[in-house]
């Protein structure tokens, strides 16, 4: 596939730090290969800015193969841009026309404050995980044999699909309410579907939801946008399961 090159105009959110006000800045960038990924295009822009002795654009990225969940970016009104089922690092410039104007903004959520430019602080997700996203088993090497409890393939597969969440925050960014229910739902589901996770299911649902609420995420109104924009295709089934688990937990818990 012979790659061609395009010229584009970029409108990018620039913000010095979490305390300053930001604004959209306009840049033009020429000769962008359509085989480049979106982030490689930003690398190219930064190279141009550095050569002009201007401040390069800060953005989060690491693995560049769609699995670490570090890249973000709200591109032309969509989390991770116009392609489906990909993260920004897997988005390719062939999705854009020559002469296109591309808006690039950080995730917008009260729970994800902007650190700089396009970089946001997603540690709220870590804290939710710390509140209950685990099975309380110590390292010992003396747990039972891995095959001691057979797990129906269907359950294992569903648990895996939920566990495929990369914690990028696209669900929050996309949701008109900035809700983190898909993220929390996926984590709660993974464990709720496995016998190893059932022991602590009640506490987990209560604690993770409490932490989610404390972080200032919005409420789920079932618009379903998160599922569509999730680069890993995490299903709304997981939110429904969280709703069930939490309902069960709040009815039976004596706390």
């Amino acid at each position: 596939m012979a790659a061609k090159t395009i010229n584009i105009t970029l409108k990018i959110w620039r913000q010095k730090n979490c305390n300053s006000k930001g604004n959209m800045e306009t840049y033009t960038l020429n000769d962008v290969s359509t085989a480049s990924s979106f982030l490689e295009m930003l690398d190219q822009l930064n190279e141009q800015l550095i050569n002009d002795k201007k401040e390069p654009v800060a953005f989060d990225h690491d693995c560049r193969e769609g699995i670490c969940g570090m890249c973000s970016l709200y591109i032309n009104g969509r989390a991770h841009g116009p392609d489906n089922g990909v993260t920004t690092c897997q988005l390719h410039m062939r999705m854009f026309e020559d002469g296109a104007t591309i808006y690039v903004e950080p995730w917008r959520s009260a729970a994800f404050p902007v650190v700089k430019d396009l970089v946001v602080d997603r540690s709220a997700f870590d804290r939710i995980q710390q509140a209950g996203g685990f099975v309380s088993v110590n390292t010992s090497g003396r747990t039972m044999d891995a095959n001691a409890i057979p797990i129906p393939k269907e359950d294992a597969d569903k648990a895996f699909e939920a566990a495929a969440c990369i914690g990028c925050g696209a669900c929050v960014a996309t949701c008109k309410n900035g809700s983190a229910m898909l993220f929390v739902g996926a984590k709660v589901s993974q464990y709720a579907l496995l016998p190893q996770g059932k022991v602590e299911a009640t506490q987990r649902a209560l604690n993770m939801v409490r932490q989610m609420d404390d972080e200032g995420f919005g409420n789920c109104t079932n618009t379903g946008a998160c599922e569509i924009e999730c680069p890993k295709g995490i299903s709304l089934d997981n939110i429904a399961r969280l709703n069930r688990e939490f309902l069960k937990a709040s009815l039976v818990s004596n706390k």
Partner: peptide
């Protein structure tokens, strides 16, 4: 209550309005 909380959850909106492809108008 939900609406107020939801507005608070995103104090700064997007410059390029959110796409309409991923959810229905009524749900929003």
């Amino acid at each position: 209550l939900l609406t107020v909380e939801n507005k608070k959850a995103r104090p700064i909106g997007y410059a390029h309005a959110a796409g309409t492809k991923s959810s229905t108008w009524s749900s929003r």
